[in-house]
Design a protein around this nucleic acid. Structure first.
Lengths: 337, 337
DNA sequence: GTTAAGACTGGAAGCGCTTCCAGGTTTGGC
DNA sequence: GCCAAACCTGGAAGCGCTTCCAGTCTTAAC
């Protein structure tokens, strides 16, 4: 069914023959290896041009044991959540870093068991040169699989209870502290927090940041309710908090989505933001500008996260020295606090 | 730098040796080829298990001339727009269709010239078995590149002025007609439209649907303004339309984003929705539920689009017969109309 | 008891590239 | 003018798998 314009690509042998040199010589000029005379180089290059030769990726991969492909694996229970702009940003970052290399990006949605086993197989059959992992739960089997495969691996974010050798993460702790300190600086004292899932490192770190800031300011953490980063969970959590602490005067939500939910509940409860209650979110991924009022939030650059992960992975693959890193976050002031 | 657990994977030769058969025999059981005796099969399978053998992807690819990888290329001027949930949905759809096969997904963001040349190279070096293309402008050079590569290719949406042999598209024309007819059914007669870019097939088709519905109902298209599918452009267009046709009583926006912009402008202009002006959008990708009031819109399933594209591509690669298709759209009634 | 049609099997030739090695040519320092 | 060191070169051996082919061995029909 495929169109038949598939004229067989010329091979290196044909190039060599046309240039009147051996295949090894041709290969050498192809790879810009040393020990090639000017004459040979010219002849081969001309032959390449005339034949429109392009090296076959697979053959080269077999000989060099390098596929030229890196995987980005996203592990999540619910594939739907992949539609979150978050992942789009990661991909944009990764792609931009890859653009200067001749590595390509293989995307693996490893949500189901099937997806995970496909990924395992991909790694064990040496289908990729390295892998980037995102959104892992603490006990994700993927961590073992990856470790066992013995492939260069970089984590985006750190799983809870396991710090991988190489990772890139946002400064969740610092960001949460920033947010809380901002609220404190506004004179608020009855500050509550809507946390993300505490079973994830992100959720836990942002909660820790809140607590640390409160305690360092001599305040006692005033109240908390756990959400799961979604808008709906933010609304539920906010409702609970209003019940338990009717006199709260500020809330730090560990995600913009949850902050949006909180904002809605607050407005329904007749509290005005920021007059009665100041609100700060976390992420700054678009939605923050569209809430009412626009959300003061902690900005993290997800594109940079993707870009840096990729950079680290490239170094790893090249066998060069590199290091994990934590990317800074910063407060973006809008109207909600 | 890579962890050293990389114990070299056993090869098929080793499996054959251990099973006491030839490599060809081993290969045959691996590929479930006929003409293998029970004894041979058992011996090989045991050896495979004992050695933990897994075939090397690259070697197999070289021998079969099949990489087991398909590309999804997204061409867009602005890589940022990739963060739109739209693409996430496509990917979820593609992944789910791929899950039952042993094909993997290579993602190419071909926005820049560099990205495009990387893609060209990937195709010409036989790096993938087939390709899916999305978001092409009418004159995108990618169409030529792909055609020349002579690889199975499936388009998601049709470029303007060029109907590819294989594509999967949403029924934009029908959807727009549905939306407009709904407005007409509500008794509105001064219906305007905010179009998407008319230089794209989607934009043009949705505009055509609006016109056809109007004319078939004996109404004259009441006014139009071109946007580019974004919220900002929708706001601008709406402002223009209000200026030109102060008495309009309904608007069909060719995307939910633009509808959201229109909604904002209408509310600022003191028009109440749907009482004064009824509004219908297009896409139904999440934002429609969050506008104020919630948006009546035309639903299209982007996940299905991705899934179907993949299905068609798989058939193409397998050399089986298949066909392009147009996916139905349907009206989702909420509060704006 | 033949014999022809199948069922198996292993050898060998690929797939298209890289890279080691040994031999042959140049260099340049003295 | 001599010799070691450096430079070039092509042959050949891989990389790990599939597949064609020509044999050998069964089977079963007559």
């Amino acid at each position: 069914m495929a169109t038949d314009t598939t004229r067989r690509q010329p091979t290196l042998d044909e190039v060599a023959a046309r240039a009147g040199v051996s295949r090894s010589a041709a290969s050498r000029v192809l790879n810009k290896a040393p020990h090639v005379s000017r004459a040979t180089r010219d002849a081969v290059e001309r032959a390449i041009k005339e034949l429109g030769y392009l090296p076959n990726r697979t053959a080269r991969a077999l000989a060099t044991r390098q596929t030229g492909i890196v995987a980005l694996a996203i592990s999540h229970d619910d594939p739907e959540l992949f539609a979150d702009p978050f992942f789009g940003q990661v991909i944009v970052g990764v792609s931009s870093a890859l653009e200067e290399t001749d590595l390509h990006l293989l995307l693996c949605l490893a949500s189901s068991g099937r997806g995970r086993s496909r990924l395992t197989n991909l790694l064990n059959t040496r289908g990729v040169d390295g892998i980037m992992l995102m959104a892992l739960r603490g006990d994700d089997p993927l961590t073992h699989i990856v470790r066992r495969a013995g492939l260069p691996a970089v984590y985006g974010g750190r799983p809870l209870h396991f710090t991988p050798q190489w990772y890139v993460d946002s400064d969740n702790l610092g960001g949460a502290r920033l947010a809380t300190e901002h609220l404190i600086g506004l004179g608020r004292t009855r500050i509550v927090t809507v946390t993300g899932e505490l079973g994830t490192e992100v959720g836990a770190a942002r909660y820790r940041g809140y607590r640390e800031a409160m305690i360092m300011a001599g305040l006692t953490p005033y109240g908390m309710a756990e959400g799961d980063f979604t808008e709906a969970s933010g609304a539920t959590a906010m409702a609970t908090l209003l019940d338990d602490h009717p006199d709260l005067d500020a809330v730090f939500a560990a995600s913009d989505n949850m902050a949006a939910g909180a904002l809605r509940v607050l407005s329904e409860a007749g509290r005005s933001v920021p007059a009665d209650v100041a609100v700060v979110g976390f992420d700054d991924l678009g939605i923050a500008e569209r809430t009412n009022p626009p959300l003061t939030t902690v900005h993290q650059s997800i594109q940079s996260l993707g870009k840096e992960m990729t950079r680290v992975l490239i170094e790893l693959i090249a066998g060069r020295e590199t290091a994990s890193l934590i990317l800074p976050t910063r407060l973006v002031r809008r109207d909600s606090a």
